[in-house]
Every structure is written in structure tokens, then in C-alpha cells.
Amino acid sequence: MFPDVRLRRLRKGKIRDLIRETTLSVNDLVMPIFVNENIDSPVEISSMPGIYNFPLSEVAKEAKETADLGIPAVILFGVPAFKDAEGSSSCGETDIVQEAVRRIKAELGDRLVVITDICMCEYTSHGHCGIIDFETKEILNDPTLEVLGKIAVSHARAGADMVAPSGMMDGMVDAIRQALDFSGFENVPIMSYAAKYHSCFYGPFREAAESGYSFGDRSTYQMDPANSDEALREVTLDVAEGADILMVKPALPYLDIVYRVKTEFDMPTAAYNVSGEYSMIKAAAANGWLDEKKAIYESLISIKRAGADFIITYFAKDAARMLK
């Protein structure tokens, strides 16, 4: 007890660095990239200052800039020129994400891990993450699984290093694993959005990906923010179906879930520091209410401290520059 024990002795100068329990490195970061078939030059997303939609002609350049900062991976989201109820522009061999993967791989080869998001919301005219019954307005789980498998195979064939299903359809990991294995892509890992909550923090993403829904909401397939045990049930099922990496989304409001998933399963665990989390810090910093660099660091280190092995974050490039 005090005065014999003085914890402040270890908080001075370089001693503080020596005993630091959690570290943040550029290798912990994944940068999201939006690629849009409808534009000819980069377009800044109004609700996400500093984040852009890129045309196909610019996506490899953006990926190279990311790799040059030492960031090891990107995750791609596509905005197609054509949308319909079935999301038919999602799984063609020459669709937007497939072409983006090819261009990045042609430019960078294995310098960068290319992850692709597997969902339908960016490709459907109604903005939901699956096939729907228009009479009942129900999002149909099982018919959607076949489409998700086709998307995953088309991404793998284009050269994706990893696929990441995000639609929270029951059985999605199993359907994708079977489709990949049947097509000869048994070595392509699956990072499952295993615990994805029905969150208000996705708002700016919907502008970026043009994925707002035309009716209802996504509460029938994304998780209730009040539930935590349910997250472990979701993760248990995804592990049994063959998930290689588990993800929690969003990150900051769900650090308890990140901790529980990592502690319970001891598997590679990711957290998605989502668009709303990014935009809040950017807005507060722009108004002089927060020190932006310190807020970025504190947010990301808290996600690591909770147990995440790596973080998908729109701050990846900013953080990489800070860390250097």
C-alpha cells in the first residue's frame, strides 16, 4: 500500500513505453475502398471527409498508396451501374468488384491482401441484403445463400485473397465454404461478419455504397444492440460452418462483444471501426472539440485492448502516417 507502492513510478518517460500492455501497429490495419462504376474521377463522400469513391481507373492507384504506407490489406465495396431486385450485377465475372480485384492484383500482386465484402445491399434496387418476397416484404434467407456462394466464387476467381460475408443470413458461411471448395478455392479463407448489429452507426456508409433500403429496416437479420449472449451463438454457428476469422461490427459500442468473442473462441478476431465512428471523430475534430490524432489513437488502441487482432477502419491511412 501507499507509500510503499507508487504506481506513478512507472509512468515516467520511456519507462511508460517499456511496460505498455497493448500496442498498435500498421500491421493491425485494414483500409476499406469504395469502387464505383458510375464515376470517372474520385468523389469525396460528404459524410466521411477524406474518404472517396474511386472509379475503376483509380482503384489500383489507391491500393498502391495504401500498400506504400505499410498497410497490409484492403477490403473492397462495389457500387454497380445497374441494380435490380436480384442483385444480378454482384456475381458476374466482369462486374465492378471482380474487375477491381484484377486491377489491384495486376498492379500489386501479393504486396496487399485483397478482401472482398460478400453482400447484396449495394447491388439490389431495394437496398436489402438478400432476395425478397415483394408481397410480404420478407428477406428470404435460403434463396439468398445460393447467390452469396456465386459472389464468393466470382471474387475468388478474380484473385481475391479472402472473402467476407456481411449479410447476416443464417447458413451463409457454410454456403460460401461449400461453393468455394466445390470450385477449387478451398484455400480462400472466410472472414465472417459473425456478430453484426443493427446499428445507427452505418449511416455514412450507406451514402458511400449507395445502399440505403427502400422499405423497412435490417432488424430482421442484423442483431439487436441489446443482446450479447446471442452474439456468442452467432459466432458458434459460424465457427462450426468453417469461418476462419470472426468479426464484430461496429467496434466502439461493442467492445464487450469483441472481448467475449476473443476470450471464448481464441480465434483470429477482427473489429470493424465503422463509418459513423469515423464521422463522429472527424466532425468533432473539425469543430475543435477533440484532438483528432489523439482521438484516432485512443479509439484504435481500445479496440486492440478489447481483443481484436486487427481493425478494419477508415482511419487506416491516417493511423499509418501517425505510427510512422
Rank of each mutant, 00 (worst) to 15 (best):
G159C: 15
K304Y: 13
A320N: 07
L300A: 13
R260G: 08
E241Y: 09
E99N: 10
P225A: 00
E21L: 14
M247L: 05
P49M: 06
K282D: 09
T66A: 04
R6T: 15
G159K: 15
T22K: 10
G159M: 13
D266A: 03
V239K: 11
A106D: 12
I303R: 10
N53L: 00
G307D: 06
E138C: 08
Y314K: 05
H126M: 04
D291E: 14
D181G: 13
K105I: 12
K150L: 07
M1Y: 15
G78Y: 01
L145W: 08
E292L: 15
R305Y: 11
M247Y: 06
P225M: 00
M172I: 09
A85S: 04
D229F: 10
I303M: 09
Y202G: 03
R16P: 11
T22N: 11
D4N: 15
A209I: 00
K249H: 04
M169E: 06
E86P: 00
Q98P: 01
E292Q: 14
V79Y: 02
D170E: 13
S199F: 08
F134W: 14
K262L: 08
L246P: 00
P204R: 01
V35T: 08
E207W: 13
L10S: 12
V163S: 03
T136G: 04
I75T: 02
G242D: 01
V30E: 02
A240V: 00
I176C: 02
E277L: 08
T236P: 03
Q222P: 14
D40R: 03
N38E: 10
W289Q: 12
R11L: 13
R233I: 01
L140E: 11
I19G: 08
S57M: 01
V274G: 07
E264G: 06
P49F: 12
L232Y: 04
V43I: 07
D68Q: 04
I96M: 02
I118E: 07
A306T: 10
F182D: 13
R177I: 12
D4E: 15
F2Y: 15
E37I: 01
G288M: 05
K150T: 15
S214K: 09
M172A: 09
S219D: 06
E21M: 11
F182I: 10
D117T: 14
E107A: 14
K150I: 12
G127S: 05
M169F: 03
Y221C: 05
T136F: 09
G70Y: 04
T220I: 04
V97R: 00
L112P: 06
L7V: 15
R9M: 10
K14P: 15
S57N: 07
S47D: 05
C129I: 07
G92E: 05
A320I: 08
T116S: 05
M322N: 05
